[in-house]
């Protein structure tokens, strides 16, 4: 089954999905800078119809943590 979150990250960052995992964070990917981070936040909110609080954005240091945050809002990904 396709991982929607990984695909979303890959599309925004402009990298292949295979190069990403739940452990990936900004330190592992040169493309994940603050500009892309802003796009990621917008993309996640749009794709999963959620609104992220500042605290949640601050917590999202890896794709895995982003997944937990979104699941915490009742969305199964």
């Amino acid at each position: 089954m396709e991982d929607k979150l990984i695909i979303l990250f890959a599309q925004v960052l402009g990298v292949s999905p295979e190069s990403l995992s739940d452990a990936t964070g900004p330190e592992d990917t040169d493309e994940w800078d603050s500009l892309k981070a802003m796009e990621l936040v917008s993309a996640i909110e749009e794709a999963f119809a959620v609104e992220l609080t500042t605290a949640e954005i601050m917590k999202m240091r890896t794709i895995g943590i982003a997944r937990e945050v979104i699941r915490g809002k009742g969305i199964d990904i």
Binding site: P26, S42, T54, R61
Partner: peptide, 29 residues
């Protein structure tokens, strides 16, 4: 200049990014 600050004293830049930039609304246009 953005790439400069992303590669100069990176630990301080990262600190400021996560503790100032994000809370002050850096990820919202």
């Amino acid at each position: 200049i953005q790439l400069f600050w992303a590669n100069w004293h990176m630990s301080l830049t990262r600190w400021a990014q996560r503790n100032v930039f994000v809370p002050v609304g850096g990820y919202r246009k």
